[in-house]
Nucleic acid binder design. Structure first.
Lengths: 189, 189
DNA sequence: ATGTTTGACTAACACTTGTTAGTTATAATG
DNA sequence: CATTATAACTAACAAGTGTTAGTCAAACAT
């Protein structure tokens, strides 16, 4: 499967360009130039610009879905689950920070897969909320506005792609620990 | 100054379209159609598509700069300053949530004003960091990774535009209080 | 009433967009 | 060696891009 490896290169290059200028601002000619070939040659490997975007976003979205699915099955308490969710985001984002930019900013340019993506995202958010609500029930988490908690944590985790590329790889688990500690325990002394 | 009011309408409409599809994906013909006129007519009021984006982003960025400037001059302690920063973000975002989408996602498409915008943002982040560091010095804030704290708070505050439009106007100050409480005190019981 | 500004219009420009068709040198396979 | 698949190429298209020039009716100012 040589064909596959070339396609992967294209997607990898596209991912980088998309995070810099966004999907709509990146031309097939831009992408071709970055690959050192002509725009028409791209179509020996991919079928459309759309397909590239779908590949980037859907595979990431599914990673999150499967990751959370695994955490849900765990027997640990809500706080531990939240910590694991933080690690999940840190790990996925560290593996593909540029792709996360597309997922965050260009999902609306999905066409065929738009409704599927939206379903994945909605389900993910609902499961995330459930973890928090369980924590409230079991008296581990403050009985304050759970939607504000959810919003705050999700916002931070979704923005990881902006900050994470600057981190060295070794300290990744440490960083995830620090992050979850701040999200859960706050910054107050 | 009738001319000005029409220009304002155009920018307002553009802001709405930009948040839905991003700057690059919105056509001058899209914008014209949304205004009920033809694309060429837009140029009686504005000089370029670029100008619209600059107007949206720079005015918002300056609002943040001036707001933080005022908070810095305050005699209150770091925790109080952080609370005020939360209110600043909530208020500015509530006034122009769609514009915040452009500021967050389309700043890279600024041309003439790009370096100016970057300077404003860099200065803002540095001042924000200083507030946190002062809090650590005065023993009000945990002596943990201040950059992770900064990242977490900024991420949440910058994502407000996604969630805020759904909130009713009356509860705005209350929401800002809840938010700053969660950011500062965490969710842990 | 008359002259001027306003803000819309049509027509068009030069260029860029994603994509297809057809060609060809190289590499893999029988 | 002959054949086929691969992956690049050139050329081109049809549609869409931001923007300019020039026109003209209605509203305003004198």
């Amino acid at each position: 499967m040589k064909r596959d490896s070339r396609k992967t290169e294209i997607i990898k290059t596209a991912t980088k360009l998309f995070k810099e200028k966004g999907y709509s601002a990146v031309t097939m000619r831009d992408l071709a130039t970055a690959m050192g070939i002509k725009a028409a040659s791209l179509y020996n490997h991919i079928s459309s610009k759309q397909e590239i975007l779908s590949d980037i976003i859907i595979s990431l979205a599914e990673e999150f879905t499967y990751g959370l699915e695994a955490i849900k099955k765990t027997e640990e308490n809500s706080i531990e689950k939240l910590k694991k969710i933080c690690h999940l985001h840190v790990n996925i984002t560290a593996n593909n920070p540029y792709g996360m930019a597309s997922l965050n900013n260009d999902w609306m340019h999905l066409e065929d897969q738009l409704t599927y993506y939206k379903k994945l995202r909605k389900d993910y958010e609902e499961d995330f909320r459930t973890v928090i609500e369980e924590g409230v029930k079991t008296n581990l988490i403050k009985d304050a506005k759970t939607d504000v908690m959810l919003f705050s944590m999700l916002s931070t985790l979704r923005s990881l792609y902006i900050w994470l590329p600057k981190k060295e790889d070794v300290k990744l688990e440490l960083f995830a620990d620090e992050l979850s500690s701040i999200l859960i325990n706050g910054i107050n002394k």
